[in-house]
Amino acid sequence: MSVAAPATSAPQASTDSPKATIVPVAGLPIVALVLIGVVVAIARDARWGLVFCHVVGGGLWTAIDLFVGFVVGPIIGSMSIPARVEFSKRFMPKMLLIMPTVVTMTLAAGFQLARQDGFLDPSVSQHGWIVASFGVVGVMAVIALAYLEPANVAVLFELAKPEPDGRVIEKLMKRFIYTAGITGLMQVTTLIIMTRLVSG
């Protein structure tokens, strides 16, 4: 699948397109609100709040990862180059806020639930599943933080240039494609682990 965006066509395609935004500032209050909610739920040991944060965050994280990796990704791959640039300019800044927020919400609440339920105790039968879930999260964290997020930000900076370099965008976008399969596999593994955990 190609994700090339030629340097010559990008500026022409963007004559009436919006200026590339790196971080959508309007979304920051929502992020702050969500993170404060998670901290309050942890500080008060609020069972419902923790379950809400973990289930909603986890559901969104898994669904977005799978949907973007296996549905939106191939669609973007089949779009024309100017359309891909247009889509990326609007889509990527939002992902830059949504994904770290959803991930933080899920993991922080999930860890507290594991502690409350005693799953962190090595003598509990489900402890192995919890450690496995830590491992899965570790793999996803390395991929996301070392490769995906830096590439996401770099693409946005490239798109913000008057004449974006198509080869730079192509190279960076390839990271998404190469890692989509790994992330998808990890998400399916997460679903298996979590359903095993709650099944006892």
Partner: peptide
């Protein structure tokens, strides 16, 4: 796309 590698004559070399 081969167009991705078509650098205009006046353009600086790609940083890739």
């Amino acid at each position: 796309s081969t167009a991705a590698h078509d650098v205009p004559a006046h353009a600086a070399p790609s940083l890739v």
